[in-house]
Nucleic acid binder design. Structure first.
Lengths: 192, 192
DNA sequence: CGGTAAGCGGCACTCGGTGCCACCGCCAGA
DNA sequence: TCTGGCGGTGGCACCGAGTGCCGCTTACCG
């Protein structure tokens, strides 16, 4: 339970991302992944419920981190709490950035992956909405809180997309984009 | 080209939604849909590239309508323009509401459909971002415009979700929710 | 009336995903 | 040491979505 994932799954994942990068996601069959990972096809599906999950798997860890980080934030301003939580989550070591880039690239331009990813984000949206409703004193289903939750996640997608579009952006640039997005959300989009 | 869809496709679609409602989306095979529509399986796939498209097909029409409505809006305030555009688009006749409800229900709770729908919404996001960048005088890739586009679509999803959750909400209620969501986006989420 | 093109649909195939089951290695307990 | 679970493995057969191919009908046009 302390081990987030077995060593074998890790190996499988690395080999798979390698193949996806070299020949494309759709062009790589599960059979190839299994063979390349030295494992039976059936076993592959025990580690990853779906071919998509090889790429998306870690998003769930991200959700857990988000929930935890949100809970750590004080105050009654959901924007400030969400901003701090996302900044806290998105601390990547320089060594992790290439892998992050590859993942984001896949998610960005394989429609199937983009689709599945946004479904995963639903839980993020709910978590943010619930947190905001709590801080505002709204009831759980409040439209404002729902809009907030979804808008925040949408903004973070925009941030990742913008960051990924700049080939040499580093971890600090990511933080700056997060700040910028939250500024916009906080201030609103009305013309002055 | 004037005819948005052939009569046969329309029949196919009605029969399919009927079956989805009565026995569920996943539990209905394309074979059944073809048989029920009095058409060959192969032909079914000529009308709908995917089983999902039976439910989602009309979203593309919605995009065209959105783009048109946005172009009709004057002024340099993207929020006002988007608000007016969405209000213009979402005029449903009372007779259409039950069908809309069924569609939304399916999209809401069949994950596969929710996933595919959000991919379709990418084009909406882009259209809104481009429009906003134009009105603000930002360049096309501006983060603020990207965030705006995505936040608007996210809000509209929240609106449809909220509307669908209230069984007896009518067309006016939908408009009111749209207003409320845009108010929040316009004002921003900062605490006073 | 003959020819041609477009829509139709059957057939066979690929690929992702699942249920079933046999097998292997490990660890208890007698 | 033998024996009986038990978890992980992976082969096999199957299902459903989606696609390419090809032969057929039908309707339109010279």
């Amino acid at each position: 339970m302390a081990t987030t994932r077995s060593a074998r799954a890790q190996r499988l994942e690395n080999v798979a991302l390698e193949l996806f990068a070299s020949q494309g996601f759709d062009e790589t069959t599960v059979d190839e992944l299994a063979v390349a990972g030295g494992v039976g096809r059936r076993t592959f599906f025990r580690y990853f419920p779906t071919k998509l999950d090889v790429v998306l798997g870690e998003l769930d860890d991200g959700l857990a981190a988000l929930v935890g980080a949100l809970a750590d934030q004080p105050g009654d301003d959901p924007v400030a709490a969400a901003r701090a939580a996302f900044l806290a989550i998105n601390h990547y070591a320089a060594a992790e950035l290439p892998a992050l880039r590859r993942r984001l690239g896949l998610i960005e331009d394989v429609p199937e992956l983009a689709a599945r990813a946004t479904v995963r984000y639903r839980d993020w949206e709910s978590a943010l909405a619930a947190d905001a409703a709590g801080r505002w004193g709204d009831d759980a289903g409040s439209l404002r809180a729902q809009v907030f939750g979804r808008a925040v996640v949408a903004s973070m997608r925009a941030v990742f997309s913008a960051w990924h579009a700049r080939p040499e952006a580093d971890a600090d640039a990511l933080g700056a984009l997060v700040e910028e997005a939250f500024d916009a959300l906080s201030r609103g989009f009305a013309s002055p």
